[in-house]
Amino acid sequence: MGVPLAFLYAQTNTKGAAALTWGELSKPEQRKAVADLKARLTQSVAARDKP
């Protein structure tokens, strides 16, 4: 089919698009994307938890 397996199991269009995009990234780009997402999540949680 030419699509990542994760695309077939995606529960939303956004997750499907992410799976397709992910499949186009090189391994180093994937590692950087994961690091960037983790940093964004950390910042989001910290901002949400501020009194």
Rank of each mutant, 00 (worst) to 15 (best):
T21R: 13
Y9F: 10
P28F: 07
M1K: 06
G2M: 02
V45Y: 06
Q43D: 07
A10E: 07
A10K: 05
A46C: 06
L8H: 08
A47K: 15
T21D: 09
S44M: 10
K15G: 14
K32G: 03
A33R: 11
A47R: 14
P28A: 05
Q11H: 12
L5G: 01
A10Q: 04
G16A: 15
L41K: 15
L5M: 08
S44C: 08
F7A: 15
V45E: 08
P51R: 13
Q30S: 04
R40M: 12
P28I: 06
P51Y: 06
A6V: 08
M1Q: 06
V34W: 02
V34Y: 02
R31T: 01
L20D: 03
V34F: 02
A18I: 10
R31I: 02
S26G: 05
A35G: 01
V3A: 03
A6D: 12
M1Y: 07
K27C: 06
L25A: 03
T42Q: 12
T12G: 03
L20M: 14
P4E: 00
A46V: 10
D36E: 10
E24N: 08
K50T: 15
D49F: 05
A35R: 07
G16R: 15
R31S: 04
G23N: 14
K32L: 11
A18M: 09
V34L: 12
L41F: 13
K38P: 01
L25E: 04
V34A: 04
G16F: 08
Q11M: 11
P51L: 12
P51C: 03
K50Q: 15
K50M: 15
A18H: 08
K32N: 11
A19D: 06
T21K: 12
A39H: 01
A35T: 02
M1S: 10
L25N: 03
R48C: 11
A6W: 02
E24Y: 05
K50L: 15
G23E: 08
K27P: 13
A35Y: 00
Q11C: 07
T21Q: 10
V3Q: 03
G23K: 07
F7N: 03
Q30E: 04
D36R: 03
L5C: 02
E24A: 07
T42S: 10
